[in-house]
Amino acid sequence: MDIDQAKQAVRKRVWRRLIDGGGAPADSYGKIPGFYGTDGTAEQLAGLGEWRRATTVKANPDWAQLPVRVRALKDGKRVYMAVPRMASPQPFYLLDPESLTLPPEEVAEKKGAAQVARRVGVEEVEPIDIVVCGSVAVNRSGARIGKGAGYSDLEVALLIEAGLVTEKTIIVAPVHGLQVIEDDIPETEHDFSVDYIVTPDTVIPCPNRRRPRGLVWDDLTSEKIAAIPVLAQRRPT
């Protein structure tokens, strides 16, 4: 079994466990799960000293992390939310709490952000204090796995290359407790680990920090590069 097949086997097992265990609705299969208790993850995260000190948050656009994005805006933090599928030369929405024209609950949704938020390129992003990443499964060493599209890895790698995600940046995974597994999660050169797992009930510090040095071009197909404008612009010649 190659590493992609091994990762997919983990995903299928966790989607099934989460749904069968009553942790998320059935339509969560195949996605970043919209688990029950998402508001609790925002509360747990807000209790961290790193959160209180943070001024900038980079977040994925999935529904499960909406309460965290809303909490960040209510706490006065600038939020950089990934444009879905990175389908723009400016791959992030800037949600600025000082200039919102919609309530945080609306602007932090994909639809609201698309209506009112400014798209920004990597060169306009400020250094990131906290990265919030959607995950299908995580283990206590901090290894994580997404739904398989690879966008979180690319977004973080871009920001590392630009010097905006550094050793000082904290990466967190808000998930349901049923998404926290004891098994090993296969990792490749482009994968990053998380510093904290945040469930509706607790915060789990993870000891084995792992970050790529930047974009791993050898892991990207020509089709993937062509489909993501910000990668096509940076492709080494």
Rank of each mutant, 00 (worst) to 15 (best):
6 A>S: 15
10 V>H: 04
12 K>P: 00
13 R>K: 13
18 L>W: 01
23 G>W: 06
23 G>V: 05
26 A>W: 05
27 D>W: 13
34 G>K: 15
36 Y>A: 11
37 G>T: 02
42 A>M: 02
49 G>C: 02
49 G>A: 10
55 T>I: 00
58 K>N: 12
65 Q>H: 06
72 A>I: 02
79 V>K: 13
80 Y>I: 08
87 A>Y: 02
89 P>Y: 12
90 Q>C: 14
90 Q>L: 13
92 F>V: 06
93 Y>H: 13
99 S>P: 00
101 T>L: 04
111 K>P: 00
113 A>D: 08
114 A>I: 00
118 R>S: 14
121 G>Y: 08
121 G>P: 04
123 E>Q: 12
124 E>I: 00
128 I>F: 12
137 A>G: 02
139 N>V: 00
150 G>Y: 02
150 G>W: 03
152 S>T: 02
154 L>S: 05
154 L>W: 03
158 L>K: 11
161 E>N: 03
163 G>A: 11
164 L>T: 03
165 V>R: 07
171 I>L: 15
173 A>S: 15
175 V>P: 01
176 H>F: 03
179 Q>L: 07
184 D>N: 08
192 F>H: 15
195 D>T: 03
195 D>C: 06
197 I>G: 07
199 T>W: 01
200 P>R: 06
205 P>W: 12
205 P>F: 12
206 C>P: 02
207 P>M: 12
207 P>C: 12
208 N>I: 00
211 R>M: 15
211 R>S: 11
215 L>T: 07
219 D>S: 14
219 D>W: 05
224 K>L: 14
225 I>D: 10
226 A>F: 00
227 A>Q: 14
230 V>P: 04
230 V>A: 13
231 L>N: 10
236 P>W: 05
